[in-house]
Write a protein that binds this DNA or RNA. Structure first.
Length: 276
DNA sequence: ATGGTAGGTGGCCTA
């Protein structure tokens, strides 16, 4: 049984619900994890997704900022939301699928971007980002999600490896690629025991990007991107990893998000066998 | 060191 999961920072789900549908039609994922929905729960455009077969929707949204959601064709049996850094920001939501789907747990994160100045003493947003990553580590230490069948996806706002950015040296002091961030993210992933799905199939030094800044006239000129969006798999789930797709063309759609969808396809029978 | 663009909001914030 195949299962595909997309993660996408949509930068306003109300403005781009039609683009979510366009992606669904092109890519046919079973589950779509969205970040930056910028939408209170009562205004989430659930009906247009239900009409397309995504009858199971979990939202954690707020007015104006942040916000995450999970659209699913498969019923989930449980949802859970975590708060980080003592704030009410909507930056996490998770669901668990039924036993036919290996009791798969899906965690959808939107890590704080961190502002412009990469100094926690000068920039409270960077302090918040580092604190958030610290709490993610504490959560994986306490909860051990990678010991179960689990996927952690989202806009993690860190490009951890050298070829996750268009120019490693030029970005070493740019928020999203500073050593303190890349080491923190890698420490979470490795300590928790997750597998970076995209890098398992496309190791360095292949350059892979999922985000291109709005602040350039033409994002294709010089291809100045970064890989900020990630899909991490517990080892048992990684045993079923078949392929991945970076839907780069979405960055050239009219009025695009600055991020593009990242999708993995899994073979759940291989996941079940790995668990047995 | 700076500015560039985008979205939601409500008279600026975050990215």
């Amino acid at each position: 049984m195949p299962l595909s999961v997309t993660t996408w920072n949509i930068n306003s789900v109300r403005l781009r619900a039609d683009q979510v549908i366009r992606h669904i039609e092109a890519c046919n994922p079973d589950i779509v994890c969205l970040q930056e929905t910028k939408c209170p729960d009562e205004q989430f455009p659930s009906s247009v997704f239900r009409q397309r077969g995504y009858g199971h929707i979990a939202v954690n949204g707020q007015k104006g900022y942040h916000g995450v959601a999970i659209l699913s064709r498969i019923p989930f049996v449980r949802t859970d939301v975590k708060a980080f850094c003592g704030q009410n920001d909507c930056r996490h939501i998770s669901v668990r699928l039924p036993s036919q789907c290996a009791d798969l747990e899906i965690h959808n994160f939107y890590v704080p971007a961190g502002g412009d100045v990469p100094d926690p003493e000068l920039n409270p947003k960077f302090r918040h980002k580092l604190d958030f990553l610290g709490e993610m580590l504490a959560w994986t230490d306490a909860d051990q999600p990678a010991r179960r069948n689990s996927i952690l996806v989202g806009d993690l706002n860190v490009a951890p490896y050298v070829t996750d950015v268009w120019n490693h040296k030029a970005l070493l002091n740019v928020v999203s690629h500073t050593p303190i961030e890349t080491e923190a993210l890698e420490n979470i992933r490795a300590t928790a025991g997750f597998v970076d799905a995209v890098r398992k199939l496309a190791p360095e030094p292949e350059k892979i990007f999922t985000w291109w800044s709005y602040r350039s006239k033409d994002h294709t000129v010089n291809d100045r991107g970064r890989r900020l969006d990630h899909i991490w798999l517990s080892p048992g789930v990684a045993a079923g990893l078949e392929d991945f797709v970076i839907s780069r063309d979405a960055r050239s759609w009219e009025r695009p998000s600055d991020h593009v969808p990242v999708t993995v396809r899994l073979n759940l029978e291989a996941v079940q066998q790995a668990a047995a």
